[in-house]
Design a protein around this nucleic acid. Structure first.
Lengths: 222, 222
DNA sequence: ATTTCCAAAATTATAGATAATTTTATCGCT
DNA sequence: AGCGATAAAATTATCTATAATTTTGGAAAT
C-alpha cells in the first residue's frame, strides 16, 4: 500500500522543483543548474534533465539550448490568460461531471470549502481550494482535460503565492457554496455559470497594495 | 537565416517521433525502444529519453516506469474529448484574436481554405486546415493557450489519419468560408459560434464504414 | 499437452566521463 | 577610468559504461 504514481527519480525531482517554483522559493528567472540539483538529490544529472522537460511542458520553466534552464517569469497578462483558460476548461469539465456527482462527493466538497474558510494562511487555503475544484470536476472522467486543468491550477497557485507572500485573512467563500447549492438542486448549468465567473475573479495582493504598484501582484482567487 | 526553433538533438527526435505517431507509422501500443531509436538517430539514448518526456506531455506516448514507453492508444471517447477541448479553447482564442485580425491575415486564411478544398489526400488537407486555424487564432497572442491548441491539433490529426488511411475525397469547406465572412463583417461572436460547432464535427472514416465497425474509426474533420 | 520455474537475453534507468559552449574574470590598451 | 580582447572557469549536452529490472525462451514436472 501507499504506492507512488511514479517512482522514477526524474518524476520525484520534477515534483519537488515544481513545488518550489509554485511556492516562490525559486524566483522567476532563477537559473536551474543541473549539476547542483543533481548533487542535492544525490543522483547524476540525467534524471534532472528529464525533470526539466516536464517542467518546461507545464510552463514552469523555460529552456534555452546550450544556455540552461530558468524559472519561467510571468506577468498580469499571463494571470488573465490562465484564468480564462481555467474558466472554459473547468466549465467543460463540470458540464460532464454533473451527472456523475453523488451526495457523498458534494459533502466532501463542502467540507473542503469549510477548511478553506478556516485556513490560517495562503498555503492551507490553496490546498483546500484545489481539493474543492478537483472533487467536483474529477467525475467527468476526461483525463486529458483534467491534466490540463491541473497544470493551470499549479500556475494559479504560483500567482497566488507570489501576490500573498504574507497578510492572508480568512473569508467565507460564497461562490463555492452557491455552486454546491446549484449542483444539489440539479441545476448544472447554473453551477457552471457561477464557476465560470468564480475562476476569473482576480484579486490584488497585499504586495501591490503596499508598494503602490511598483511590481504588480495580482492573482486568481478562486 | 533558416534558424531552427530548437537545435537540440532531443527536440529533433521528439519532432520526428511525434510526426510518425500522428501519421500512424507508429501504431497505438507500439513499444518505443530507446536503444533502437538512439541507434537510428546516431546518438546515445540520453536525448531519446528526454524526447520521450516531451511526447508524454503531449499525450502521444505513455511511459510506465521500468517497463518502457509505448505509443498512446485512443478511442472514440478521446476523440470527443479533444473535440470539446478544441471547441472551448479555439473559441476563447478567436474571441481575443478577432480585434487583431487584418485583411491580409483573412486573405491568407482564405487561401489556406482554397488549398484545403483542392487537397488530393488527407495529409495535404490536414496541413491546410491546421494553417487556417493557426492563422486566425495566433493574433490572440496568448502563448500558453496557443501551445495547448497546437497539442490538441496534433491529437486531431492523429485521429484523422487513423480513420482516413485511404479514400480521401475533395469537398468544399463551407464552415471556414462562413467564419471568414463573419470575421470580415466584424461579427466576431458569430464567427466564434460557427467555429465552436465546426470543431466538434466528428466524421466517420472509410475504415469504419467498410469494415462495418469492427474497429471504430472516427475523427474530427475541422 | 500444459503449467511452473529458472536462466539467458534484452531493455530500462542511472552513474561516471568527455567534448563543446557559454559565462566570468583578467589584463592590456586608448 | 572605460572599453575590448583573451584566457580561465563554469556549465551544458552528449557519449560510454554499469547496475537493476523485466521479458523471453526453454526445460522439467505434473
Amino acid at each position: 500500500m501507499g504506492k507512488e504514481p511514479e517512482d522514477t527519480i526524474a518524476s520525484r525531482i520534477s515534483r519537488v522543483l515544481a513545488d518550489r517554483i509554485v511556492r516562490g522559493e525559486l524566483a522567476p528567472g532563477a537559473r536551474l543548474r543541473q549539476d547542483h540539483i543533481a548533487e542535492e538529490f544525490q543522483t547524476s544529472h540525467v534524471p534532472v534533465r528529464e525533470a526539466f522537460r516536464r517542467l518546461e511542458a507545464q510552463g514552469l520553466a523555460i529552456s534555452e539550448p546550450r544556455r540552461g534552464v530558468r524559472v519561467a517569469s510571468f506577468d498580469l497578462s499571463e494571470v488573465r490568460e490562465v484564468a480564462e483558460m481555467r474558466a472554459v476548461l473547468e466549465v467543460l469539465a463540470l458540464t460532464h461531471a454533473a451527472r456523475h456527482l453523488t451526495p457523498a462527493i458534494l459533502d466532501a466538497a463542502e467540507e473542503a470549502t469549510r477548511e478553506g474558510d478556516a485556513a490560517a494562511d495562503v498555503e492551507a487555503w490553496e490546498d483546500a481550494n484545489r481539493r474543492f475544484h478537483r472533487l467536483i470536476l474529477a467525475p467527468c472522467g476526461m483525463n486529458r482535460l483534467l491534466a490540463s486543468i491541473d497544470d493551470l491550477h499549479a500556475a494559479s497557485a504560483r500567482f497566488l503565492f507570489s501576490a500573498w507572500q504574507s497578510g492572508w485573512e480568512k473569508h467565507t467563500d460564497h461562490d463555492h457554496r452557491a455552486i454546491l447549492h446549484a449542483l444539489r438542486q440539479g441545476h448544472a448549468d447554473e453551477a457552471a455559470a457561477i464557476l465560470q465567473k468564480h475562476v476569473q475573479r482576480i484579486g490584488r495582493g497585499p504586495q501591490a497594495a503596499r508598494t503602490g504598484g511598483s511590481r504588480e501582484a495580482f492573482a486568481i482567487v478562486g
